[in-house]
């Protein structure tokens, strides 16, 4: 009996540091944020209870609504294009006749290694309206120039182009791992039965890749709702709020306007959106198991 209790005691020593850190820097902050979201608080002075006013404000404020819309628009471009593209690339890479698979993967992974800050700087230069290479190419082809990140209708697609470029390599690696896990015999058997090309993809690859795809899709959706750095560096939400996003609004309200209560309420709106997608993922994975 004694050694077992001793083992238990040790187990708690093993997990204690982690629990302490998570308690202090995740659990407690979440509770504080929840309370703050019902107050008016500017760091100076004490929080003043205001009920659900912050939530009401967030959902009626034109700028925050615009931010929700922009974020959703960004997600609708970013998620499907990136996931489908990464899947097709991974499918191409795992064909048995492909050589230099590693080399290709290294090339695709270079943007993933680059910080969002550095990527934003590079693309600021590419999108530069007067001297940038993209408008240079358009001019050379006698096509109308674009305002890219400086145009109201082009800014969100331009930003999602950058993040798709930056992130797809990560998904390629995950999809390649998933595809390599599918037993080759399944394809051989299907071939004997006369299946080929897309029918094999549809009937073997996609069903067996369901968990992997779901993981990639849900993590992409969650990431897309958190877009911030590119916006902060390249557009500051402009022109005329055409690219402000949920996290950009949280940042501005908290650290520029010092409306900490309002920003906390906005962060809980984001939390609910993300929770919705996380729960879908948990649920589907549960069902699989």
């Amino acid at each position: 009996m004694k050694p077992k209790t001793l083992g238990e005691k040790y187990s708690y020593t093993f997990i204690m540091p982690a629990l302490l850190m998570l308690f202090l820097f995740v659990a407690v902050p979440t509770i504080i944020a929840f309370f703050l979201s019902f107050t008016d608080y500017s760091i100076l002075g004490k929080p003043r209870f205001v009920g659900i006013q912050n939530y009401r404000f967030a959902l009626h404020d034109n700028v925050f609504r615009k931010a929700l819309f922009n974020t959703a628009y960004y997600a609708i471009l970013y998620v499907p294009i990136k996931v489908i593209l990464s899947f097709l690339i991974a499918l191409a890479l795992t064909q048995s006749f492909i050589n230099y698979k590693k080399t290709f993967m290294i090339f695709f992974y270079l943007p993933v290694l680059t910080s969002m800050t550095a990527s934003s700087m590079i693309w600021l230069w590419i999108y530069q309206p007067d001297m940038g290479i993209l408008n240079g190419i358009l001019s050379a082809l006698h096509l109308p120039r674009s305002q890219w990140i400086y145009g109201k209708s082009t800014v969100i697609p331009s930003i999602s182009t950058i993040t798709i470029w930056k992130d797809f390599g990560y998904d390629v690696v995950i999809f390649v791992a998933g595809l390599s896990g599918i037993p080759k015999e399944l394809y051989d058997a299907a071939k004997v039965d006369g299946a080929h090309g897309w029918s094999m993809v549809k009937n073997i690859t996609l069903p067996l890749l369901k968990t992997t795809s779901l993981f990639v899709i849900v993590t992409s959706i969650i990431a897309s709702f958190q877009v911030f750095t590119a916006i902060y560096i390249m557009t500051q939400g402009g022109p005329e709020n055409a690219s402000t996003t949920v996290v950009h609004q949280i940042y501005l309200n908290a650290f520029s306007y010092l409306k900490m209560g309002r920003a906390s309420a906005m962060s809980f709106v984001l939390f609910v959106i993300i929770l919705f997608f996380s729960l879908i993922q948990f649920k589907i994975i549960r069902v699989e198991e």
């Binding site: 998570l22 202090l24 820097f25 995740v26 659990a27 407690v28 902050p29 979440t30 504080i32 944020a33 703050l36 760091i43 969650i222 709702f225 958190q226 996290v247 949280i250 940042y251 908290a254 900490m260 920003a263 906390s264 962060s267 809980f268 984001l270 939390f271 993300i274 929770l275 996380s278 729960l279």
Partner: peptide, 16 residues
């Protein structure tokens, strides 16, 4: 805890 987005933690962690 994995489901809590880091943006929720920005303000309170700053205060802590």
């Amino acid at each position: 805890l994995m489901m809590i987005p880091s943006q929720v933690l920005l303000i309170p962690t700053f205060l802590i």
